[in-house]
């Protein structure tokens, strides 16, 4: 009986949280469409299936090898497409992360099937129906997938992991024929000297904009982020000015974030910025201009000079968090 193939993601030998979200989405599809959920885990030796049954995997297909530690696009695509075909799954689900946004189209092209990327809801009642934001979150498509199989990538933080007690037993699978892959090889991953939380993955984000006036003043943002356990984000204006790296940019030409808490400091709230953070659960804005558009999307706002407000906010939050 067909089921759902849930492609899991690991980094440095640790299974990422989004993998549990992928299992949750796969589980709900399998409950609607019938069949089992099979996790597919590709990575280095030493990985285990710990926690995967509890998140809904009936089985974990494991392909562990030293040369699969880093994401090797071609080989991962080959292995996944082979498994998808052999297992006759009705859908392949993966996370819309840097990994899944690269791997998803490869699998769909190899299977010759439709792809729905970055979906925020999914049902399998009468065929698979998904919703996905388009026009940078300014509209939402409701789409029905009319053929089988299909590839679906889910937006991180849109599906909550579930507690399901399934066996999640491991089954080793073949690493595919590496002679069939292209010339591309991931040779290394450059980790930054000071490992920082990524805006796309953090549960809280503090972003600074042109109102910070000078790059040095981002210390204030970093301190507030530190107090909240948040990642540092930025508007495009300060990225283009060279104050902050592109990896921190939130918005239409940056990252889309859906944290529990988003704090915008000295950011006006241009439509392209809002595109990247409108799905945050709680938005706080600090801006001296009471008419700044950011206040239209903020749950809580303080009007005033950020240089007076932010240090005090950092202190107060430290007090609360340190109990």
């Amino acid at each position: 009986m067909p089921g759902i193939l849930a492609v899991l993601e690991q980094r440095n030998g640790t299974i990422k949280r989004v993998s549990h979200e992928v299992l949750a989405a796969a589980r709900s599809l399998a409950d609607d469409l019938g069949g089992e959920v099979h996790g597919l885990l590709i990575g280095p030796q030493g990985l285990t299936n710990a926690g995967l049954g509890e998140s809904g995997a009936d089985k974990v297909l494991a392909c562990f090898s030293a040369d699969l530690e880093l994401y090797q696009a071609d080989r991962y695509a080959l292995i996944t497409a082979e498994q998808a075909t052999a297992g006759g799954y009705s859908a392949v689900v993966l996370g819309a992360t840097a990994f899944g946004k690269d791997l998803g189209p490869r699998i769909a092209a190899r299977l010759g099937c439709p792809l729905a990327s970055d979906v925020t809801s999914i049902t399998g009642g009468e065929g698979i129906v998904v919703t996905r934001p388009v026009y940078s979150g300014k509209a939402t498509y409701k789409l029905k997938i009319t053929t089988e199989p299909s590839v679906i990538s889910i937006r991180p933080n849109a599906f909550a992991p579930v507690a399901a007690s399934r066996s999640g037993s491991m089954e080793e699978i073949s690493a595919g024929d590496s002679a069939k892959t292209s010339s591309a090889r991931t040779v290394k991953v450059k980790e930054p000297e000071h490992a920082a939380l990524d805006v796309a993955e953090a549960s809280a984000v503090v972003s600074g904009g042109r109102g910070m006036k000078e790059p040095e003043h981002f210390r204030l943002i970093e301190d507030l982020a530190g107090a909240l356990g948040a990642a540092v984000g930025a508007s495009r204006a300060v990225v283009d000015a060279g104050w902050r790296p592109h990896s921190e940019q939130v918005g239409q030409t940056g990252k889309t974030v859906s944290p529990n808490l988003y704090v915008a400091v000295g950011i006006s709230g241009a439509i392209q910025h809002l595109a990247g953070m409108r799905t945050a659960k709680v938005v706080v804005a600090i801006n001296k201009d009471p008419d700044a558009p950011i206040f239209k999307v903020a749950d809580y706002g303080i009007v005033g000079d950020l240089f007076e407000i932010v240090p005090k906010l950092t202190d107060e939050i430290r007090k609360v968090r340190e109990g």
């Binding site: 292209s182 450059k190 490992a195 796309a200």
Partner: peptide
């Protein structure tokens, strides 16, 4: 290519 919090370095040959 940028991935979450790091950068992947990929080598390949043309055409690509």
């Amino acid at each position: 290519r940028e991935i979450e919090g790091a950068v992947e370095v990929v080598e390949f040959t043309l055409p690509a």
